[in-house]
Design a protein around this nucleic acid. Sequence first.
DNA 1: CTCTCCTCTGGAACCGGTTCCATGTTTCCA
DNA 2: TGGAAACATGGAACCGGTTCCAGAGGAGAG
Lengths: 340, 340
Amino acid sequence: MDPVPTRRGNAAPTIRDVARHAKVGVGTVSRVLNDSPLVSDEARVRVRKTIDELGYRPSSTARRLSLGRTQMIGVVAPFFTTRSVVERLRGVVERLRDRGEYDVLLFDVETLEQRADAFEAFAARDRVDGLLIVSLRPSDEEVARMQREGLPVVLIDVAHRALPRVVIDDVLGGEIATEYLLAKGHTRIGFVGDAPTPFGFASSELRCHGMRAALRRAGIRPVAALQKRGAHGREEAIELSRRLLAMEDPPTAIFAASDVQAMGVLQAAEALGVRVPEDLAVIGFDDVEEAAVLGLTTVRQPLRETGARGVELLLSAIEGREVGPVEELASLTVIERRTA
Amino acid sequence: MDPVPTRRGNAAPTIRDVARHAKVGVGTVSRVLNDSPLVSDEARVRVRKTIDELGYRPSSTARRLSLGRTQMIGVVAPFFTTRSVVERLRGVVERLRDRGEYDVLLFDVETLEQRADAFEAFAARDRVDGLLIVSLRPSDEEVARMQREGLPVVLIDVAHRALPRVVIDDVLGGEIATEYLLAKGHTRIGFVGDAPTPFGFASSELRCHGMRAALRRAGIRPVAALQKRGAHGREEAIELSRRLLAMEDPPTAIFAASDVQAMGVLQAAEALGVRVPEDLAVIGFDDVEEAAVLGLTTVRQPLRETGARGVELLLSAIEGREVGPVEELASLTVIERRTA
DNA sequence: CTCTCCTCTGGAACCGGTTCCATGTTTCCA
DNA sequence: TGGAAACATGGAACCGGTTCCAGAGGAGAG
């Protein structure tokens, strides 16, 4: 018989197989795997050799169970509803890769039901070491539960007073856009934004609020009829814009709550033969990549950076450094291009 | 003393804690958790109640270790280099959500080094139950290794003879685009595509090959000088287009290997005052969402569907249904808009 | 009344790592 | 030469599930 009993069948080798073949204890193999200095060179070499020979790969699941950490962070977001979310995700992924160590578990949320599922699933204590929530506001109850379970959570593009978050001042953003248009001499300014959704995205409404504030400050009374809201998306924005442009006394400028919607405005203008910027000035929000192609004037928010910053806050929390429910504000600037 | 010893400290309750409190064995608790019929109603109720009282959540890591499955699939892709990848990912995520059960572990690859890391990481037997590789060609060695480790793999938008894959016929795509332009009367047709990269993306070159074939078939000799290649991206495409348009005898039509590059062509044309489509016809490839906004004529490939289909093949492979190294071809059609 | 058969149950063994403890071996100094 | 300190090592116990096996109890058949 073989003095070193071979593994039965062709199951993947385990740390014990390695130990047996290398004639050392499992502890030594584990120490070699983890680069512990407490191993003689001789043993280290023998173990390494055996690992290669057997084609051994440690089981990350077993490691996770033993360590009590998953080395994964969850990202919950409505990925495909908004272009800007993809850009934020990019910041998240890049920063996380720089740090090494953590993998990204993706949870896309497009419906209310999925939303509940996602939070439910992640609340499960040990699936991820931390959670990044983008553009979705968790309920007080959900927050309480995550805190009870000791799950570190950071929000991006959405606020909750009990959680650390990276956001922008949407009201200010609306003001900035409006002031830009006012400075260009416009006084009749339309708005195309999101209708309220059960998700409670609030950005669009806050931006509109900022617009109204800026108008009032300039002595102009906001006109409700000039403010149109619909589902988020280019197609819907086209329709809303058509209605604005078909008015008896149409606006000379439109502030769109997002670049995607601004694209809809541009498309509607083109379809109706309205020249931009001569007959209609258009300003968007976000500065996604296509904005440059289209020459869209827009309010830039640093999407990628907010993703990256969210990761940093989350890793701090995971690694035990205290992170209170701080709010970080990202900066906003108007990028002037050809549409306004 | 308490007849039922309480857990020490405030560690999360385990299945044994539940068993103790409910005065049943761990086996019964496990059976309740997994909806086994082999449990009396009385025991089931008692266990459920205890679970609620203790706020017990099963550890998915422990479950994974015990089951030998991770219930996760890995997706390796160069996410942010190409708009089309995001759209494919969308198909992947949506289909996977329909099926429930599996989570998505994301691996973004933007550099060669990351590429090696990603395959290395995933080759680790137990991290994921299956792997979806998008737009990245694994080497023979990498493929051999994954097969040795028994990891199911499906490719999307890239081919390898040993693996199941969902692709398009890029040569045919090039032919279709070219024939469309030929039918419009163009004979001097330029090309803007990707320079060869160490990743070995081959689509662009194959599409160019299709173009040349179509030209020859129409009795036109392809002109190398009209075929420009550069890094993938809008900016680079602008530069390439500038050079094409600055030629003594510029092309009257340009076929861009992707919509992103077609956008660059449009931008260059606008900058140089070249009218589209009067002076220059432009056709792209992919039909990403922005193509509609820009009115870009393009060759549509069903991006989302290929992602979804890839998931189906992968799940079949994971669940043990034999999936040979089949090749599935997605359909291609020209979407006529305003640029050609 | 006994013998099956079926339902339900408890708990040990297992999945594959990490860690800690007890023990052995060297080294070095008094 | 004795003994402490430092290093190296093997292996049991542990992480928290699942599963299998043996056995208890009850119902039904002969």
